[in-house]
Structure formats: C-alpha cells, structure tokens
C-alpha cells in the first residue's frame, strides 16, 4: 500500500498543466496515471497527503485528484489544510461511496467535482479539464492583480490620493479644492498616474481601482 516515493521532480519545468493524484491504493493511482498519460496529460502521483505536501509544486495550471478516504488525514481534512496554507488548487474528489453530507461539504469547500468510484473515464477527464481551466483563469487573474499591485506600489502617496478621487468621478477642480492644491498640479498627478498604472483611459483606471479596491476616502487599497 505504500505509495510510490515522490521523486525529486522539477515540477516547475514546463508550462503544460499537471494533474496530481493522491490515493493510498497503488492500483487506482497507476490506473489514473495511465489514463491521463493516454490523453497526453502530465501526471504526478502520491501515496499520501503528506507526500504531496513534501513535494515542490510547479507554478503551472494544475489540479488535485484526492481520494476522500485517505489514511491518517481524510481528503476533506486535507482540503481544509490546503486552504489554510493558502494553496489554491482545484480539487476533484473520488470516493468509494459518496454520501450526500460529504459531497456537500467538499463542494462547499470549493471542490470542482465529486466522482464515485468506479467513475467513467470521460467524467474524470472532463472534471480535470474544467479544473485545469479554472486554475489557469485564477492563476491569470492572480497574475494581473499582482501586476496591478506592483504598479500601484510605484505611485506616491499623493498620486494614490488623487487616483482615489479621480476614480470616484471628481473633476480636477473639485480634487484641487478637496486636497488644497492647484488644479494644474492635479493634472500633472493624473498624467503620472495614467502612465504608471498603464491605464489606457479613465474607465480603464476605474476598473483597476475596483480591482485594487480603492475608494475615494482612503486612496489606499482596501483589503
């Protein structure tokens, strides 16, 4: 029953997505690996949650296939643990006999799918495709957001303040009055902001402000 030892893989090598399989049963593990390889998917298998946590996860779109009845740490507990460690990987659960409460709990905790063994191969592949797609999107979103944050970080405190007021829809004149500076200075700040944030237009900037959660009062990103 011991799982295949996690090889010291270099997971972060390629851009192609990876499917991770955690199951204490070697047959199931190998069969899944076989299935994913037959459709040309990269796959990594682990005998336990512990082994999975030990390995270094690649920064590519991926998903995790978990048996809900894992020894020591159940699949659901493992899901909670991953969330706690802020590892946001889409999870597909497998179970020998899925009961409704278990399914509900797993789905509420963000599972992509819940498959009962034995499952149809197409269901599994569909679930994996969905999961990887979801991970790719969320990874993209995360990347955009982190870019935005990086750009926002280059703004001076005054520019952040002005950006907050601009995106709240105030005119230059009003902004100048609001913070007690010349209108021309407001215009200069605006120019800097548009350039630093790489905003193509005012609506573009407003969208960015929304993503960053900037309000008119604070001028700082709200978390």
């Amino acid at each position: 029953m011991s799982g295949r030892p996690a090889s010291p893989h270099t997971l972060a090598s390629a851009e192609e997505p990876v499917v991770f399989v955690v199951d204490d049963d070697a047959s199931v593990r190998d069969a899944l690996s076989n299935l994913f390889r037959s459709v040309g998917l990269r796959v990594e298998v682990f005998g336990s949650a512990h082994e999975f946590l030990q390995s270094k996860l690649p920064n590519v779109a991926s998903c995790l296939i978990l048996d809900i009845r894992l020894p020591r740490l159940s699949g659901l507990d493992f899901q909670a643990e991953l969330a706690k460690a802020d590892i946001r990987i889409p999870i597909i659960f497998m179970t020998g006999h899925g009961d409704i409460p278990m399914t509900v709990r797993a789905m509420k905790a963000g599972a992509v799918d819940f498959l009962t063994k034995p499952f149809r191969d197409q269901d599994m592949l569909d679930a994996v495709t969905t999961a990887i797609e979801r991970d790719r999107v969320s990874r993209d979103e995360a990347r955009v957001l982190s870019d935005l944050h990086a750009r926002f970080a280059t703004l001076t405190p005054r520019e952040r303040e002005v950006m907050g007021l601009v995106t709240a829809g105030l005119m230059n004149k009003q902004i100048a009055a609001e913070i007690g500076i010349a209108e021309i200075t407001v215009k200069i700040h605006r120019g800097h902001i548009m350039r630093k944030m790489a905003a193509k237009s005012l609506p573009d900037l407003v969208r960015m402000a929304e993503m960053l959660g900037i309000g008119p009062a604070s001028g700082r990103p709200q978390t």
């Binding site: 047959s27 199931v28 190998d30 069969a31 899944l32 009845r69 063994k117 034995p118 149809r120 191969d121």
Partner: peptide, 18 residues
C-alpha cells in the same frame, strides 16, 4: 466495499486508458 471498489475502479480506469 472499499476493498472491492478500489481494484474495480482501477480496472475501469485502466480499460478506458487502454
């Protein structure tokens, strides 16, 4: 059920892969 299900799941999956 688990004992039987595991090999069964493996068989079905392997057959699909095959």
């Amino acid at each position: 059920a688990h004992e039987v299900n595991q090999p069964l799941a493996a068989v079905v999956t392997n057959a699909a892969a095959c």
